[in-house]
Design a binder for these strands. Structure first.
Lengths: 196, 196, 196, 196
DNA sequence: GATGAATGAGCCTTCATTCAT
DNA sequence: GATGAATGAAGGCTCATTCAT
């Protein structure tokens, strides 16, 4: 049964999320993760090739879930502006309601070398593509400017939201992140220039 | 002579920049930095309290230089839009022409715990404030929207540029970063909505 | 099995005794002890918190054994003079027949800071108390002088024997230490004054 | 002028005595001694071959002074018992009134390897010989027992006093050491047996 | 599959000693 | 003689990974 294998596998991922969030990747010994997961040290190596794999898989699983939620939520929405609002709303509320995950994605995942960054990049790819598709659709429907540099703008949008989350996290989460959805969206849609 | 003292200090910083960029912080042994700097291992500890200090100081020095350039360049510019263009232009060209520095700031500096992230944040503060002041001035002069959430927008702008640099870096620097200044500025100023 | 755990623990202690005796504490690298014990360097840290702990535990174990022997030997002896003779005899013969232990107790254990000295002192306490009890009993039975300053005299007796051992050791063990039991006892019992 | 040379030499010895007493030999860095002495690190190596030499010389100088005092005080005394009393009195009072010296001689000097212990032994020799001569004279004058094992007894006497000092020191110097001269002397002279 | 005791490579840091000034 | 910046050897300790049970 894969369910049995999944059981330990999931326990380890959950333990790792907790331990990474509390201590940071480099101060999270494998033995500490094993204890948090309630398994023996060696058991971890039955499911993960090396310590770094735990981080990668954790990210992939969690980001997969997130991207799934993005897809599900956007699916029925035909208005690209509404789709963008939904993406931003989910991005902020999901991380706001899950500080451990936020910490790991915003802080710990960056604690990795160029190689890992590329892997993270590919895991993020579906999310970036999702934004890209919204942009394309918006341009086609003439809701967005036709001269958009889409590859660039999707990155700028992602980077904006990412920085908004990181700032909120580093500030100590003193204000509600979800309260910034509309202002962020306004920035995306209209920029900062006065109408004149 | 302070020049003499500065000499070794600078040699170590330069060596560290090179070694960090090549290997990443965690794979950069102190002995490797010492060799790159042309000094003995122990000498490093005459100028830096511990290995992590090298990273912090490196960042502070280099970012200090960058912020200085921003200030110098923006000083004589009265038009806030032009000021924003200048900031973006310098941000992109400086890092484009200095890939080692780009690597360390975009990748390695993120490989640090929350504590260090806060120190980095405070070193970045003057830059963020510079953007904030441009925004304030623009609002006052009615060039920017009066309803801007300035604290948020300055972060979004910084985050956008930051992500643009990271993407360019992770892509393998296959395209000229400086070629994206105008499109980025267009995004900041007008957003993505079509005029209608 | 605790025997299995004890096995490595004992191997390390034995290795340490040998290496300390040959090289002295400060010139005994942990790796040398590990090799002598036939275990890996890291294994030592599964059983001992730090290098200094090996010395402390070694002393406590070995001194514990010695004190046990003193107790066993004295137990059935009712004559306090005979008890004192037995103590001196065991003190000299045990160390004489175990030069490695003698070296560590007389030389290396002194190579420690005040903090460790206090720990050693507390481990020695039962031995000192044993001597003290013999003195008390002797005074009660009117075999020893009633005006003895017992706290002082127990120290003087211990110090005498200790110095006798150290001198023998530093001399290169050129004469039989056990041959000095009777003269030492004579000194304790009658002092040096002529009867007149 | 040797006086000039002696000046720095003495400064270093004084600094070392202070630093050794405060920190213990192994935690007394050469640079700390240099600072306490008010000289440069390198200067120490103009007067001492290596760090260990400082300890040896310090001991030799200080012990030399002590032995000088013993000789001066005993010189005019013809009664061997009185001579022994004087020796014990000086031994206790000198170290009691100079806790830094006491600490270094009783604790730090023991923190040395067999080689150094032998050097210390030879520096102590004149003191041991002084005691030996008193014993010989006493035996000749029939004040002490004629069957004394002089080589042994001189060590026992020295060891007794030495232990008395160390115990007093480790106890935290809570009682006056000089108050134990008479009881100690009583032990030397008459031992512990009741007269009968 | 699961365990966890054992491994041993790896590395930061200290500090006695040197030597150019 | 005096300085103190520079040196670099040395070693205690950690912890990711393995493997016999």
């Amino acid at each position: 049964m894969t369910s049995k294998k999944n059981e330990k596998y999931q326990l380890i991922l959950q333990g790792a999320l907790k331990v990474f969030a509390e201590n940071g990747y480099h101060r999270s010994q494998v033995s500490k993760i094993a204890k948090a997961a309630g398994v023996a040290d060696g058991t971890i190596y039955l499911y993960f090739k090396r310590k770094e794999d735990i981080l990668i898989r954790l990210f992939q699983e969690k980001l997969g879930e997130l991207v799934g939620k993005f897809h599900d939520s956007v699916e029925g929405i035909t208005d690209p502006i509404e789709a963008l609002r939904t993406v931003c709303h989910i991005h902020f509320t999901e991380l706001e309601s899950n500080p451990e995950l936020a910490y790991v994605t915003q802080i710990e995942l960056r604690q990795s070398d160029l190689e890992l960054r590329k892997e993270i990049g590919s895991a993020l790819k579906p999310y970036i593509v999702l934004i890209e598709n919204i942009l394309k659709q918006g341009v086609e429907e003439n809701r967005f400017r036709s001269d958009l540099n889409i590859k660039l703008v999707r990155n700028l949008i992602f980077g904006s939201m990412d920085e908004a989350v990181t700032s909120w996290l580093i500030s100590g989460r003193k204000y509600p992140l979800s309260g910034q959805v509309e202002d962020t969206l306004g920035f995306f849609l209209h920029g900062i220039s006065s109408k004149e």
